[in-house]
Nucleic acid binder design. Structure first.
Lengths: 338, 338
DNA sequence: TTGTATGCGTTATCAA
DNA sequence: TTGATAACGCATACAA
């Protein structure tokens, strides 16, 4: 382990050719068991370690998957990543992870870096404000598999892994309506992102199906940072009709809102019913416990990992699996119960 | 971008040698501005992209930092990682992240994989049950910088980045004592890990300083998974003397405990005062809000990133920076207030 | 079953 | 300021 041992050193030691060493180490079928054993033994003895740099150059592959996500420190994302990492690791792939910090510019840089670093495939969840997708074309042109997760965009040959956000939005809204809410407001993140836009779409559909009238006033867009709860409260208080239902598209922000609302003496669920999104652990710890949509982050990660590895290995039918949709579930808790 | 362009292609196009191309692209001082411009222009025109595999092989470096952490999906860890990633990214390094899932065996595998993959340095936070550290010796022997973060172990030439867990444990306990608690129980994770052992040590010190007697019954070790709250409750209820203080070494678990305790009609803080650890976002959302120790995960990540990069670049004095300790802070909230 | 020889795309040394 | 050439360590096509 002191000096770097190469296959040439082993070859010299054992009086065979470097080719034989290489083949033995890679368990090539043409090599006799005897030779293989001999080589492997010697390799361990001398502390031989393959030089991945050479292997990579030779094979033009890195056994590495790149990942771009908005932020590492969110419950959903870290759960998703945990899933991806598990699958990738088991399949012998490493993960290079970078965060866009919700900025398209950083996302572009990350994409470029990852492209140059020679990853075999890439997994992406888009930043809040990404509206140009040219930074992904190099991957497509070079036929490097690209899969979008959760915050997706439709690009040729790039499968997406999502839940049915429209239906989820519908389910949540319909539930609030069934609970008797008359004036339901949606608190959403950036509507450029499919996840939010689709949920809002579902909200509208549910209103329509229940013959409620829709008004754009009922949509409040925010960055969903804790400091912005006061904006939400201010907005709600100034509505003409009293608000009795809140559909907040992220549990963590919903939890902060609940805290503020309680301070202002709103009674939840009596005066105001709330449904969140994600089934973040916070949802069972907050008082009242938060109704929400279960969002299978870990499973999404597992699936994304499996899919991308299948694509790398070429054993997948792209046409058939262009958009994978995972199942969501409405979980009713105290915050929306009568 | 269609066919792979190499420096040879550029050389042929421009009638210069490949060496000149390489030097131009790397902004080597010996090349005239005119040639450089010409080369760069052509490179962009043809969509040239360096082959990192070749660069890595040639230079025997990968500009990549390996990371092993117990779990990606915890607030503290994802925050820590966010910090590391930021610094690394800005310095032009990629992060290869793998999780041990709290298992020493997986940690060993991860270490081996990362070692083989040719990372330039490695950052580690140990699994719950790691008690053998041989899997790190290859890095030390090969002089690959290794820094332990948070869950650390003292190994030659491996700096550690931590907070003063002993003092933090002392502060929390002393606070509970000052609030009038007579019988304080510590709920801890695996005591093999410095973070927990040290906090418990601080707890003992605080008892001693206040002339309280210590009993091993006052320490309850658990995996701190939500499902284990009932064990905690059972334990507390069966104590001879009524418990009036709880020092729970992780906010997330503390939050779950509070929920259970409230169900059992404990009054917090009247009957029972609680201090957690980490200043997890949950601590302000739970009712009552949770007193805790602020744990600077993001800053720890930044520092870890900076330190490891300094070490890679060789501009650091190892002796001087063997153990970096970050500042913690007791945050008093409702759960321990009189 | 094994050996030989070449190339993967760079960087760096030495000469010019 | 530039060119020629030799590594870097491995995998593989082709020969033996």
């Amino acid at each position: 382990m002191e000096k770097k041992i190469t296959i040439y050193d082993l070859a010299k030691e054992l009086n065979v050719s470097p080719g034989t060493i290489s083949r033995s180490l890679n368990n090539h079928p043409s090599i006799s068991k005897k030779t293989k054993d001999k080589v492997v033994l010697k390799a361990n003895e001398l502390g031989y370690k393959v030089n991945k740099f050479a292997v990579n150059l030779r094979t033009q592959k890195s056994n590495t998957i790149g990942v771009i996500i908005p932020k590492l420190d969110s419950y959903f994302m870290s759960t998703l990543l945990a899933g991806v990492e598990k699958v990738a690791n088991e399949a012998g792939y490493n993960l290079i992870i970078s965060q866009s910090l919700e900025s398209m510019e950083k996302e572009k840089l990350n994409a470029k870096t990852l492209y140059n670093s020679g990853i075999d495939a890439i997994l992406v969840s888009l930043a809040f404000n990404t509206e140009n997708y040219d930074h992904f074309t190099p991957f497509i042109k070079s036929k490097i598999p690209l899969i979008f997760m959760d915050r997706v965009h439709v690009l040729p040959n790039c499968p997406t892994i999502v839940i049915d956000n429209v239906q989820a939005g519908y389910d949540a809204t319909d539930h609030l309506i069934q609970q008797g809410c008359k004036n339901i407001i949606v608190i959403t993140g950036n509507l450029k992102r499919n996840v939010y836009a689709d949920r809002v779409l579902g909200y509208k559909k549910a209103l329509k199906a229940n013959k409620y009238k829709f008004s754009t006033d009922c949509i409040f867009e925010t960055t969903m940072e804790p400091k912005n709860t006061s904006d939400v409260l201010g907005y709600i208080k100034n509505m003409d009709e009293p608000v009795d239902g809140l559909f907040i598209l992220a549990d963590s922000f919903a939890a902060h809102c609940i805290k503020e609302l309680k301070k202002e003496n709103y009674n939840i669920p009596e005066d105001l019913k709330i449904v969140g999104f994600n089934n973040d652990p916070i949802s069972v710890l907050v008082t009242p416990t938060l109704s929400t949509i279960e969002y299978p982050g870990y499973n999404m990660g597992l699936l994304a990992g499996e899919s991308i590895i299948n694509q790398i290995k070429g054993n997948i039918n792209l046409q058939e699996t262009n958009a994978i949709s995972l199942r969501h579930k409405l979980i009713v808790r105290e915050s929306s119960r009568n």
